[in-house]
């Protein structure tokens, strides 16, 4: 395995921290929740947007761009912060998040450049992404489609319909990342609707399955490299799922693994404390 360039990892870690700070900033300003879910995916988005995805903010509708769908739309604060850092829009637009006359709302909308799909209702993104991947196969285009889904989203039947369909059609250009933070709206995934054995389920549905620490940038980079290697193998031709073990509210001590931070918003004191934690 090739040695990963330490400076790339450092740079991406830095990007993830910037995303976290922006999540806190816009959520605090707007007094909007879902902070825990957004912090959970900050590292994943940093890796995707600053290393993996072939996209160009100057040509957001480029035909051959990689597609990325945030199917767990409620974590949009992370996506919008990332799109801003990537140069899709200005800070002024980012700060309009959930403001009167603002441009950005609490779930991703297609009208925002860089957003492929309006989401918010769980369970749609994987199937729509599958359609995009299928279209690429029909046209022999080489873009890849990435879909980030949540663990609770796997309660939806459509996810498993798509899981069957993607392997049936041998869509090796489809990569799903699951934000497996194991907490959903009213309890842990184990309490609400148990997903385990999760790895075995995806494997049985005919997917390449990887497990990573969703906050370990070096490990995620290695995994994405492995996925690309697999894609080159003629006999594989399977879609890939990366189960990213994550922590809801990651990075802020008093939010980590706390169910209530699906709903709570920060008061001034909490906001200052959170920012301080990120800066230390």
């Amino acid at each position: 395995m090739r040695t990963l360039n330490q400076s790339i990892v450092k740079d991406l870690e830095n990007k993830a921290q910037q995303i976290r700070k922006l999540i806190l900033e816009i959520s605090h300003k707007a007094q909007v929740g879902h902070i825990g879910s957004a912090l959970s995916i900050a590292d994943i988005l940093a890796v995707l947007y600053f290393k993996i995805l072939r996209i160009n903010p100057k040509k957001p509708k480029w035909n051959l761009r990689d597609r990325f769908i945030l199917s767990k739309g409620h974590a949009v604060a992370a996506l919008y912060s990332t799109l801003f850092l990537k140069g899709f829009f200005t800070k002024k637009i980012l700060l309009s998040y959930c403001q009167n006359k603002g441009f950005l709302g609490e779930h991703p909308e297609h009208r925002v450049l860089g957003v492929e799909l309006t989401t918010g209702s769980l369970g749609h993104g994987l199937s729509v992404g599958l359609g995009m991947a299928l279209s690429a196969k029909i046209d022999k285009k080489h873009y890849q489609t990435f879909i980030l889904i949540s663990d609770a989203e796997c309660n939806e039947g459509e996810v498993w319909q798509a899981a069957l369909t993607a392997s049936h059609h041998r869509l090796d250009n489809l990569i799903v990342i699951i934000d497996y933070n194991k907490v959903q709206a009213l309890g842990t995934t184990r309490e609400v609707l148990n997903l385990e054995p999760f790895y075995a389920k995806w494997e049985a549905f005919g997917w390449n399955v990887f497990e990573v620490d969703g906050h370990n940038i070096a490990q995620m980079l290695e995994t994405f490299t492995k996925v690309q290697t697999l894609k080159l193998k003629v006999q594989n031709k399977k879609p890939t799922v990366i189960i990213a073990h994550t922590i809801r509210g990651k990075g802020i001590s008093f939010m980590e693994n706390k169910l209530e931070w699906h709903y709570f918003t920060t008061n001034d004191k909490q906001y200052r404390k959170a920012v301080k934690e990120l800066e230390s």
Binding site: E116, L117, H124, S127, V128, G129, L130, G131, M132, A133, L134, S135, A136, D139, G157, E158, Q161, A162, L164, T165
Partner: peptide, 16 residues
Amino acid sequence: AEANMMSIAAGLALSG
């Protein structure tokens, strides 16, 4: 799998 089929159709349409 009609729900899945409809979303896939949307993805195909969004790709031309």
